[in-house]
Design a protein around this nucleic acid. Structure first.
Length: 845
DNA sequence: GCTAAGGCATCACCC
DNA sequence: TAGGGTGATGCCTTAGCG
């Protein structure tokens, strides 16, 4: 029927009807951006519950003007219509707490006058629970409610980068007290020459500061999204504090506030090569690591007040350089654009709050649920205590690796293991059939306890998750699989578009970014289902996913063993972790054939036995190592033979995993020695060697270096992050009633805090060990370093052990222990008994 | 009174 | 406030010994 358009899912961009009729055929291969380009009612920049309690939505009209709309906020919950008895209906109608009841088919929407009453009535022990009535989505706030219930989209915000300078004389801790000295914004979309703007405090007065801040808010007005490096820690709260102090009351929620650093950290976590690169995430350090040059030379932010006195304009330029640098980092990484893609496809606003996967997954799933007529049970807040009581579920399998130097090790891994499992078994909270699971052994009658559980035939229409013996309905497709399939579909579509574009072109870059975004999103769904803080948390489902992975990996390992037996050769699995297996004893071509066989024969057969009607499991031959040394589980170093079929050259860097070289909390000297030894062993940049004496020489040299000279601070400093606020670390009491010593970095953080430094959560604490023999060890803040350090401790505890473990793994026959001790034996006064014994020996010889 | 072993907390990593 | 699995280190307590 020409002209008639079928309603499409706003979530998946696919027809909502399960089958496409002949009259309305499947639309021609939907463009990759289907979920994005489907016409929506409107696209919004942001939304919030305003000061007067109304839902405030923000968008731009065609002319680019900001349109702010107010409407009643819906504090809603859902009940099953079937649960509504006459008396419950009457109750709801009578109470003035409820302002509306709307029947929407299976579901009845209840609108509340007061969010607190809604929460109380729908609480775990609330009124509804007491009356045996389940509530749904009672925790969803009005903004999310509105985004879920309507087909609105997320707009592409007008973006600007911001940097602020504050009076340096006020400690960072009390930054709200410090006068604002300058601001700068950078608009990468503006014409060249007018991208950067800055303004400097005219004089040291409240009036001047008020003018400065007023002009900043005016400058921000054309924009929707404000990005700043570490903005959540400094710029945003600081701007709010100074704005309020100067008596200004702009509605800050008209903007999206995005902390560029938080985003960078999340998306760049896996990119760092060595521990060195994990040392600092300051704007300057990150810009330099990206080859963007540094900040303006000769200006010290810690001296901003003096700088302002001396040369205000210079301070302004310094400030401007920072906002520009932030923008350049985005040009280079595209992380903000990537998040924008995620935000648009999962229906979250593109601010700091939308960075986490939980927000994205929940938002997407809520809308998917609405489209499919499903509402989710009310999610109840859990505090940390409750969280700790929650039992953890069993996760992945990790094999103890073979030790020694291994050669020609072929590695296969499952493509997108957990997503493929969820799709294959149709795993989802609502497809799980708990009533089919065999009773747990302890729940069986005691007279049967000694017998293995009876193998009951699998019921029709379900598949069985291995190891956990949990059952999932094969049809209809679950919400979780639907969501993941959509992410995979979009990823594939953008991958295809990427392939058709010329590398490096804007189109290619955009496709690459979107492909990455959907990969990230697809992989995050599992984690959210496994998180007890999520509304979709079902431990049994998450465990079933992980254990199916264990089973697939074990079956693959067993197949390798059988293959070797059939061949009459020693083909063996040297190591395996979660979704990968490292195999020795075969050729590249043989391994390729093995992987193909697994995909073609092994998995289809195994999955049929489990009752699966789909198969998304796929094993890939990822890479091979010419030479590899395992130091332990999750810790190895190897040089490539090939990667995805592409042969390695002598320029190919070795792959190092888990070793101290990769860690940011180890001593620099330790990383360097370990790296040198690994490079020598693998023949990267220096001639390859397997003669222990060559390594003895390297160790001796390093030892002399550590024990010999006066090392500079950067060679002796330890750095560890505070995982929480200093006050949150438990201070134990010893048996004698005294406080027990805390980890060194926490003790140092306490000292720094007393000096007025800002030592919040996440801060890296640097310290030097001055006496490693004391108990507890004696440390000082790195800033107090005066050349004193405990060289023996450095060698024995920090530098040597990491390298020793590598050498012991590579050369188990060699005795490496002679390097263990370098500290001269302690002169100890003899005990009375020892003195007597010595005297006796002297007397009687 | 000393030492070694083991429990526990902590960090940072792998997948 | 996406998951579990892992190893290394340091602090403390305690068992074992003489």
């Amino acid at each position: 029927m020409p002209g008639m358009r079928r309603r499409r899912s706003q979530v998946t961009g696919q027809p909502t009807e399960p089958e496409a009729s002949a009259a309305a055929p499947e639309p021609a291969r939907a463009p990759p951006s289907a979920a994005v380009v489907v016409p929506r009612v409107e696209r919004f920049v942001t939304g919030f519950v305003g000061r007067d309690g109304s839902l405030t939505t923000v968008r731009r009209n065609a002319a680019g003007q900001r349109v702010v709309r107010l409407q009643p906020a819906e504090w809603a919950c859902f009940l099953r219509t079937d649960d509504l008895t006459v008396s419950v209906r009457a109750m709801l109608r009578e109470t003035h707490y409820v302002v509306g009841i709307r029947e929407e088919g299976r579901w009845t929407r209840v609108l509340w006058a007061d969010p607190r009453v809604r929460l109380r009535c729908c609480a775990r022990d609330g009124w509804f629970a007491k009356h045996g009535i389940a509530t749904f989505e009672a925790d969803v706030d009005p903004v999310r409610r509105w985004l879920t219930d309507h087909d609105h989209g997320i707009a592409r915000p007008r973006r600007v980068f911001l940097d602020l300078e504050a009076d340096s004389r006020i400690a960072v801790k009390a930054k709200e007290q410090a006068r604002m000295l300058a601001w700068s914004i950078y608009d990468p979309a503006a014409p060249e020459g007018s991208r950067s703007r800055h303004e400097v405090l005219a004089e040291d007065s409240d009036v001047a500061e008020k003018n400065l801040i007023t002009s900043l808010w005016q400058a921000l007005d054309p924009y929707d999204q404000v990005c700043a490096w570490a903005g959540d820690w400094f710029d945003f709260p600081y701007l709010d504090a100074r704005t309020a102090r100067r008596g200004l009351r702009p509605e800050r929620r008209l903007w999206l506030w995005l902390d560029h650093l938080t985003l960078y950290r999340r998306l760049n976590a896996h990119a760092a090569e060595s521990g060195d690169e994990k040392q600092s995430l300051s704007l300057d350090a990150v810009a330099r690591s990206l080859g963007l040059g540094g900040k303006l030379e000769g200006v010290d932010r810690a001296q901003s007040w003096d700088e302002w006195l001396r040369d205000p304009e210079r301070l302004g330029r310094y400030c401007a350089r920072d906002s520009e640098l932030t923008s350049l980092i985005e040009d280079q990484t595209g992380y903000i654009e990537l998040q924008q893609t995620l935000a648009e496809s999962t229906f979250v606003f593109a601010d700091s709050a939308g960075i986490g996967p939980k927000q994205q997954v929940e938002s997407f799933m809520l809308r998917l649920g609405r489209e499919r007529g499903t509402r989710f049970p009310t999610h109840h807040y859990r505090d940390e205590e409750e969280a700790e009581e929650e039992e953890r579920f069993r996760g992945a399998y990790v094999m103890e690796p073979a030790r020694g130097i291994l050669r020609d090790v072929h590695v296969c891994d499952f493509a997108r293991l957990y997503p493929s499992i969820i799709l294959t078994w149709n795993m989802s909270p609502e497809t799980w059939r708990p009533e089919l699971s065999p009773p747990a052994p302890e729940k069986r009658p005691s007279y049967l306890a000694h017998l293995p559980p009876a193998e009951s035939p699998r019921p029709e229409g379900v598949c069985e998750a291995p190891l956990t013996r949990r059952f999932f309905a094969n049809e209809p497709a679950g919400l979780l699989p639907i969501a993941i399939a959509e992410m995979l579909r979009l990823r594939k579509a953008w991958d295809d578009r990427k392939k058709s574009a010329a590398p490096g072109t804007p189109e290619w870059v955009d496709a690459d970014r979107r492909s990455s975004a959907y990969k990230i999103a697809g992989n995050s769904f599992y984690g959210v289902v496994g998180s007890q803080f999520s509304r979709f948390f079902v431990r049994e489902v998450a465990e079933a996913v992980a254990q199916a992975g264990v089973w697939l990996l074990r079956e693959t390992m067993a197949a390798v063993e059988r293959w070797g037996e059939n061949q009459g050769r020693k083909i063996a699995v040297a190591y395996a972790d979660t979704d990968s297996a490292f195999v020795t004893g075969c050729s590249q071509q043989e391994f390729d054939e093995f992987v193909t066989w697994c995909n073609r024969e092994l998995y289809p057969q195994l999955l049929r036995q489990q009752g699966c009607t789909r198969n998304h499991v796929n094993l890939a031959y990822e890479k091979a190592f010419r030479k590899i040394v395992f130091v332990g589980k999750k810790r190895y170093a190897g040089s490539f033979l090939h990667y995805k079929g592409k042969s390695a050259t002598e320029d190919s860097k070795p792959e190092i995993k888990g070793l101290e070289y990769k860690r940011g909390d180890t001593l620099r000297l330790a990383r360097e020695l370990q790296r040198d030894v690994i490079y020598r062993l693998l023949g990267y940049r220096i001639p390859e060697s397997e003669r222990p004496e060559d390594f003895e020489a390297m160790v001796e040299l390093a030892k002399r270096h550590v024990l010999g000279g006066s090392l500079p601070l950067h060679d002796v400093v330890f750095a560890k992050k505070l995982a929480k606020a200093v006050s949150q670390y438990a201070r134990k009491r010893k048996a004698d009633g005294e406080f027990a010593a805390q980890p060194a970095h926490v003790e140092v953080a306490r000292i720094l805090a007393e000096r007025g430094e800002d030592v919040g959560k996440g801060r890296r604490i640097e310290y030097v060990v001055v006496d490693g023999e004391a108990n507890p060890i004696k440390v000082v803040p790195a800033s107090d370093f005066d050349g004193t350090y405990d060289a023996h401790y450095l060698w024995e505890s920090a530098v040597w052990p990491p390298t020793q473990r590598v050498l012991e793994a590579a050369f188990p026959a060699q005795d490496w222990s002679r390097h263990d001790r370098v500290r001269p034996p302690r002169e100890r006064p003899m005990t009375a008994r020892q003195q007597a014994a010595a005297a006796q020996r002297k007397l009687f010889g």
